[in-house]
Amino acid sequence: MKHATFFWFFLPTGLAMLFFIGFSMVSVLTQSIFAPHEAVLKEVETCTPLVGCTTETTVDHAATAEKRAAQPLGRFVGLDIYFDRGHLAVQEVAEIWATASGGGDFWDRLYNLPFYRAMAFTLVFTFVVTPFVILLGLMIALAVNALHARLRGLMIFFSLLPFVVTPLIGGLVLFWMFDSRGILGSALQYLAGDPDLSLKASTSLMWISIIIWGIWHAAPFAFVIFYAGLQTLPQDQIEAARIDGASRWQQVRYVVVPHLMPLVTFVALIQLMDNFRVFEPVVAFNASAHANTLSWFIYNDLSGETRQLSSASATSVMTIIGVAILLAPVLVRSWRDFKGKV
């Protein structure tokens, strides 16, 4: 295809991505180094007879509004927002580092800083959910593949539901069951013998519930991919392994799993990307007091009464850096593959 033809074919989609993804990243970067204008103050002298004159400092609303209209971005503050208490909290971390009595104490106090708390749960969620999704997906795929052919379609239909249903609504459906007045919450209270056990009061229960939501939501995706992979399994290799006396477990371990390995990499990549940006269950489970994620942090800044654009932008830039670190190995590999092909 000629360059010119390619250009015209690609123009609409290229423009859409350039304007709404590329420029948005630039915009986030710019906003994160500007802070809202401070209010303009003026001194007013009021003189009353007999009492004398007093000077008061008040906000000059007209001047403030004028300044904001003239420079909507705000004033330039460099990297200050990144280092303030709501984000990387450099001063606080240095202080904790200097005064902490030991490793455990250091992490405890670091966890009390909001940004690090969001970071901690995001990382735990990403790196717990991803392997479990792969494992559960593989188990379901192997089980469904062994079922009678008529049952398989039914299994796939119901399995797809948790994945297809809106994440927020799926989260609510689980939350209503896990709630202390819901069916699973009541069952847990009964099993634990503790009538006060409640999702709202327990941080660890909240973490586990959200992680269960993550696995429940994404396992069907892994299942469908692995199930498709099992359909192309080379039967002669299984046959050969069986003749050589391999047990069922050995057949799975040495023939099936290596065959599915490229798909495992694919699922892991997609899952890392998707789990790192999770925030719907935090909204659905009303969990922000116990667990929040980097994306929820941005959501919270943006949805408040006063939209804190600078703060949200700084968190966004750091989230993008996090995504880049996660993606780097994959990008390097596909670059090598591409160079190998040329």
Partner: peptide
């Protein structure tokens, strides 16, 4: 272009929304 699309695919939508607001 495909790699750029892959990177864009990885961007959390909320980080982009933060850029649109202003």
């Amino acid at each position: 272009l495909l790699i750029a699309a892959l990177i864009f695919r990885a961007m959390p939508p909320l980080t982009l929304v933060a850029g649109y607001m202003l």
